[in-house]
Amino acid sequence: MLLSINEIQKEVDKLVLKIGYPPHSINVFSAPTNDGTPYISFENEMYNYVSSERGYEFSRKITKSIDELLYWITSSFVSHISFQYELEHRIPGRDGRRVAFPMIISLMAKMNKEWEIKAQKEIDKTLSNAPYDDSLYLYI
C-alpha cells in the first residue's frame, strides 16, 4: 500500500532532521506548482515523481518503493545545500565538485546508510563522463 502525501511528508521531515534541518525544509507536493518543483502523483499503485513547468513535463520517475521515492526527494535537496556550501567556501583553482560531492555522500549516508553507496555510484558515473578539472577554476 502506498503512503499518502502527508505520510511521505512526515518521512521526509524525519530524514532532514537527521542532517540538522527543520521539518518542511523540503515541501512535498501532490500537484504541479508550475515552476519545475517536483510533485508526487499516484498511478497504478506506483509513485510518480514528476517535474513540470507551465504544463510541460520534463521529468518523470516511477517506482513502487517508498525508499526510492524518498531518495529522489532528498537527493535534490542535499545536492542543492552541498553546492551552496561549496559556493560559500569556494577554493580558487579547485573544481567545486571536490567539496560538494563528498558532502552529498556524507549527508545521504546520515539519512540512510544504504544511500551512501547509491550516491557514490551516481557521482562516480558523473565523474566518468566529466572528470574533475581544476584548471577550469584557476581564475575564479
Rank of each mutant, 00 (worst) to 15 (best):
K18F: 10
E88L: 14
M1W: 06
S30R: 08
P131R: 06
G36D: 03
S79M: 08
A100C: 11
W72H: 07
K113V: 13
I140E: 15
I66K: 14
I117S: 12
F83H: 15
L87Y: 11
Y47H: 06
N34R: 09
D67A: 07
V16G: 09
E11A: 13
Y137Q: 10
E116Y: 09
L136R: 15
E86I: 00
S135H: 06
L138H: 12
A109V: 02
M108D: 00
V28M: 02
Y21G: 05
S52K: 13
D133H: 11
P32D: 06
I19A: 08
D124C: 01
S128V: 03
D133G: 10
A119V: 08
K18V: 09
L2S: 05
A31V: 13
L87W: 08
E45Y: 12
N6R: 07
K118P: 03
N44A: 11
S4T: 15
T63F: 10
N112H: 12
T63M: 12
P102A: 04
I81Q: 06
K14I: 07
L138C: 11
V28F: 02
F29K: 02
H24E: 13
K64W: 06
L17Q: 14
E122S: 09
I104H: 01
M103F: 03
M1Q: 11
H24V: 04
S59F: 14
E45I: 07
I8Y: 08
S128F: 03
L69Y: 06
F83N: 12
I62K: 15
F101T: 02
Q84P: 00
I73Q: 01
P102I: 04
L127W: 01
S76M: 06
D133F: 10
F58I: 03
S52Y: 08
I140Y: 13
G93W: 08
P102F: 05
P131L: 02
D124M: 04
P102V: 04
P92T: 02
I105K: 03
R60F: 07
I104A: 01
Q9R: 00
S75Q: 13
A130S: 13
G96L: 05
M108H: 08
D124Q: 11
S51G: 10
F101K: 03
L138V: 13
R94P: 00
S75V: 10
V99K: 11
G20V: 12
I5Q: 02
S128P: 00
R90H: 14
K118N: 07
K10D: 09
G55V: 10
